[in-house]
Amino acid sequence: MSTPSTTSGTAGTPVGFDVTGAIRDALLRGEYVPRQRLVEADLCEQFGVSRATVRTAFQQLAAEGLVEIQRNRGARVREITFAEAVQITEARMVLEGLIAARAAERISPDQAETLRGICADMAKAVADGELAEYSDLNARLHSRIRDIAGHETADRLIEQLRAQVVRHRFMLSRVPGRARASLPQHQRIVEAIASGDPVEAEAAMRDHIASVVEALRALEASGTRRVETPPDL
């Protein structure tokens, strides 16, 4: 998603080191909290790069909606409201539906078995109460579906949108019963794709993402606002 820096490091950082990617990864791991200031000098020292390189990274991350640049105050982590998270997820619904339909048109028998295997592991994780494992498998399943679809533009847009709502996704993963409710939705998606039915695959994916929208709205209504540092989802 980002262009690697070509500035050579001043503290052993290799030429071509992706500063933008490193900061993005830290944001997605929850190393920074919403509205936290990103100190330019600290990042220069941490990565051994110039201020110009860090500023370029800030500009890229601002374009991705992860950082906001304040006049005369520098950059800080952008806070995504529940209302915006809902809109982002609604946009994802269209893109993910497109991806599912395309995957159904392109899937091979071996790929179908791979998706079914991941889904079986998800069912086991739910039965065992392994929420973190379920979350990892969920991400892996959606990633494999995007790989099968091979739609680079939609894939890039989805990754950008997902990055913006990482904390909200983590909150949803902790809602009691959420994994058990989403499992049959994923099973329906996988069977439609594996069966080569693009119409049903798109409908199943859109229904699943619509349920995420409703869960976000319910989460907002419950008054949930804080979230512990998320794991690497």
Score class of each variant (00 low, 15 high):
residue 156 R to D: 11
residue 105 E to I: 01
residue 179 A to R: 07
residue 23 I to R: 01
residue 231 P to G: 13
residue 175 V to C: 07
residue 28 L to K: 10
residue 70 Q to F: 06
residue 11 A to D: 05
residue 210 A to D: 11
residue 88 I to L: 15
residue 175 V to K: 06
residue 2 S to G: 05
residue 186 H to L: 04
residue 203 A to V: 12
residue 62 A to L: 00
residue 199 V to N: 03
residue 23 I to Q: 02
residue 98 L to N: 10
residue 50 S to Q: 08
residue 121 D to E: 15
residue 110 D to T: 09
residue 48 G to W: 08
residue 27 L to F: 05
residue 199 V to E: 14
residue 45 E to N: 01
residue 168 H to Y: 14
residue 40 E to L: 15
residue 56 T to L: 02
residue 6 T to V: 11
residue 97 G to P: 04
residue 30 G to T: 05
residue 48 G to H: 10
residue 19 V to P: 08
residue 125 A to T: 07
residue 151 H to T: 14
residue 79 E to R: 15
residue 105 E to D: 13
residue 160 Q to A: 10
residue 116 R to V: 01
residue 120 A to K: 06
residue 180 R to G: 13
residue 75 A to I: 01
residue 194 A to M: 04
residue 100 A to V: 10
residue 143 S to T: 13
residue 112 A to M: 03
residue 136 D to R: 15
residue 160 Q to T: 14
residue 162 R to L: 14
residue 161 L to V: 06
residue 116 R to T: 01
residue 32 Y to N: 07
residue 174 R to W: 04
residue 128 D to R: 07
residue 56 T to Y: 08
residue 227 V to Q: 09
residue 47 F to N: 04
residue 222 S to H: 10
residue 67 V to Y: 03
residue 161 L to S: 01
residue 144 R to Y: 08
residue 222 S to R: 12
residue 140 R to S: 11
residue 175 V to Q: 13
residue 189 I to G: 02
residue 88 I to V: 15
residue 164 Q to S: 08
residue 116 R to H: 00
residue 148 I to C: 04
residue 124 K to D: 10
residue 142 H to D: 08
residue 181 A to H: 14
residue 167 R to C: 03
residue 54 V to M: 01
residue 90 E to D: 13
residue 113 E to R: 15
residue 115 L to A: 09
residue 140 R to F: 03
residue 97 G to W: 07
residue 20 T to Q: 06
residue 120 A to N: 09
residue 100 A to T: 04
residue 92 R to Q: 15
residue 60 Q to W: 03
residue 208 H to R: 04
residue 198 P to W: 01
residue 43 L to H: 06
residue 150 G to E: 14
residue 193 I to Y: 01
residue 114 T to W: 05
residue 191 E to R: 02
residue 211 S to I: 00
residue 96 E to N: 11
residue 233 L to Q: 12
residue 72 N to R: 12
residue 85 A to C: 08
residue 97 G to Y: 05
residue 58 F to I: 00
residue 104 A to V: 09
residue 205 M to K: 15
residue 123 A to P: 00
residue 21 G to Q: 09
residue 1 M to T: 10
residue 97 G to K: 03
residue 152 E to L: 10
residue 167 R to Y: 03
residue 209 I to Y: 02
residue 109 P to C: 11
residue 206 R to E: 14
residue 177 G to A: 11
residue 19 V to N: 07
residue 204 A to S: 15
residue 177 G to W: 03
residue 184 P to F: 03
residue 77 V to L: 04
residue 103 A to G: 09
residue 25 D to S: 06
residue 226 R to T: 08
residue 141 L to P: 09
residue 49 V to H: 12
residue 51 R to P: 03
residue 94 V to P: 00
residue 188 R to E: 10
residue 77 V to W: 09
residue 217 R to A: 02
residue 125 A to F: 07
residue 96 E to L: 15
residue 114 T to I: 14
residue 147 D to P: 02
residue 21 G to R: 05
residue 69 I to L: 13
residue 63 A to G: 10
residue 228 E to W: 04
residue 65 G to R: 02
residue 162 R to N: 15
residue 136 D to Q: 15
residue 193 I to C: 00
residue 45 E to F: 02
residue 171 M to A: 12
residue 5 S to N: 10
residue 106 R to W: 04
residue 50 S to T: 15
residue 32 Y to I: 02
residue 204 A to T: 11
residue 217 R to T: 05
residue 214 E to V: 05
residue 22 A to L: 08
residue 149 A to T: 10
residue 11 A to Y: 09
residue 45 E to D: 09
residue 214 E to Y: 01
residue 174 R to G: 05
residue 94 V to L: 13
residue 110 D to R: 13
residue 177 G to Y: 08
residue 70 Q to R: 14
